[in-house]
Each structure stands twice: as C-alpha cells, then as structure tokens.
C-alpha cells in the first residue's frame, strides 16, 4: 500500500499543474478563516461576520465543512487529469507492462482519493478547532466535540465525489471531456429532479425521495446548507413567513449508506472498464 501511494505521489507531485492545484486548494481552504475578518459598517449598522455565531461550536463544524465542499472542484481536476493523463501519455499501458496489476493500478488511484479526502478532513478539523476557539461563545469540551459527524460526512462526500471523478477519467480518457461530462451529469440530475418535482409528481414530496439516490445529489445531501440555521437568517425567515420553518440538518445513516454504495459502484466500474478494455 505504501508502495502504491509512493508511486502515485511521485506522478502527482512532479507534475507542476497538479502540484499547483493541490497547494491552491489548501490555501483556499484556509481562506475560510478570512470570513472572520469580514466587517461591514453602514453608518450605525455594523455587521461583523465572526460575531454572527458562524464560528460557534458546534455550528462551525457544519458551516466549515459545507463551505469547504465548494473547493473540492480543485482536487476533482487533479484526480480527473491524473487518470486521463495515464491514457494520453500511454503510461497506463507501460505501468501494466512493467508489472503493475490492473487491480493495483485502480487501488493506487483509490488510495490517493482517500488520502486527499482524509487530508482535507483533517485540515478542516484543525482549522475549525482553531477558528472555534478564537471566536466561539462556547468552549466547553462537550460542546466543542459534539456534531463531529459533519467531519465524517465531509470525508465521505469527498471520497464519493472523487471516486466519481476517477470513474469519469477512466471512462472518458480525456480530462477536459471528463470534466465536461461531470458538468453535463450535474445538469442532467437537475433537469430530472425538476421534471420529477413539477411534472411527474407535482405537489408531493416524492421527488425528494427519488432524488436522494442520484450520485451527486446524494453527496450534496450529506451536508445540507447551514445558512438557514443562523439565528439572524432564521429571524428574517420567521418574520416573512410568519412561522418557524423546521429543517433537519443532521446526517442520517441512510444518506451515508447511499454515498458509500455509489463509491463502491464507481470504483468497481473503473476496475471493470480497465479489465475489459484493450489498451
């Protein structure tokens, strides 16, 4: 396993573009901390984001993992191109000839995905801990380490998403087309869910029940938007609608299971394609 990771990281880190994207990704992640310094002043109205409670434990786990989720696209590019490059350079063929098995090849890519997801989760964990201790109103041990399932959710969301990217890289063999495919897939999921919602099952909740099984939807479902949870926004909403909306923000076992199943499907399909294809 160490050997496979060593091979993969040599391939990644000697590549200037990949290295640049990986470093940018972590730098951008740490920019979440800069949100703390956002301050508005309009005459008497003062808004200091850090004082709005977004860095309060345990809400910070939810908020940071949700925001960090947007940056995953950087690593997605790295992963798609790490796979597609093996085809364009012909090095996949050479790796196999040199004595790597097809299983080892997929495993080395999957391990890289795990390492990326793990590194991101640890990074976010440490950063949130630091931000939280600097700004949170509550720093009791029991509160700080509650709701940590968001970190787990973040990890699984990344593993699932990156596995999807890996699969697209193998399927399409060209980075640009694979990323295009990802975009089209995203749009297609949106269209299908809109059709389900407005045309096929109007006025019911059925669409959401089907929707949650789509790969990208299931991944974004793991960590739901955290903004409506903020007291300021909740107050505005309550004022407008006249009643308090009740939402469920927690991560459910079923949602985790769906993402895990998709991950398994994508990795197995990648292996299947590689085994069946003549290079």
């Amino acid at each position: 396993m160490k050997r496979l990771l060593k091979i993969e990281f040599q391939k990644l880190l000697k590549n200037r573009a990949s290295k640049f994207l990986i470093i940018s990704y972590f730098i951008l992640l740490s920019f979440i901390a800069l949100i703390a310094s956002i301050k508005f002043e309009f005459g008497t109205f003062r808004l200091h984001i850090a004082e709005q409670g977004i860095f309060n434990f345990p809400y910070i786990w939810h908020f940071n993992t949700y925001i960090a989720g947007y940056f995953k696209l950087f690593l997605a590019i790295v992963i798609v191109s790490m796979m597609a490059n093996e085809y364009t350079y012909g090095t996949l063929k050479q790796n196999l000839i040199d004595g790597m098995s097809k299983k080892e090849f997929i495993l080395s890519k999957f391990l890289t995905v795990i390492v990326f997801a793990l590194a991101s989760s640890i990074f976010i964990f440490i950063m949130s801990l630091i931000l939280g201790y600097s700004f949170s109103s509550y720093t009791e041990f029991g509160i700080v380490f509650s709701d940590l399932e968001y970190i787990l959710g973040f990890f699984l969301k990344l593993v699932g998403f990156f596995s999807f990217c890996l699969f697209l890289g193998i399927l399409v063999k060209r980075s640009a087309f694979a990323l295009g495919f990802l975009l089209i897939w995203n749009i297609a999921e949106g269209i299908i869910s809109a059709l389900l919602r407005w045309k096929i099952f109007p006025d019911t909740n059925t669409y959401a029940k089907i929707n949650q099984f789509f790969p990208l939807e299931s991944m974004s479902n793991l960590i739901k938007e955290p903004f409506s949870r903020l007291s300021a926004i909740k107050n505005i909403e309550t004022t407008i609608t006249g009643e308090e909306a009740i939402r469920d923000y927690s991560i459910h076992f079923g949602e985790i299971a769906i993402v895990c199943v998709w991950t398994a499907i994508f990795i197995y399909l990648s292996y299947y394609i590689l085994r069946k294809r003549d290079l």
Binding site: Q10, K11, K14, N15, R16, Y89, G90, T91, K93, Q94, L96, I97, D98, G99, M100, S101, K102, E104
Partner: peptide, 26 residues
C-alpha cells in the same frame, strides 16, 4: 501470476511511454 512475471520481463511496445514532465532519471 502474470503481473509478477512481468516484473522479470523488460518490454517496450511501439512508442516509448513515459511521463513527459519527469526527468529521465525520475
């Protein structure tokens, strides 16, 4: 197994396939 046997084989087919961004030694 084939992949282990191939570790004792040296082969090049048709065109040389290497990572263009790495040096010869790497």
């Amino acid at each position: 197994p084939t992949h282990d046997a191939l570790k004792k084989v040296g082969a090049i087919i048709e065109r040389p396939n290497f990572y263009p961004y790495m040096t010869a030694e790497e």
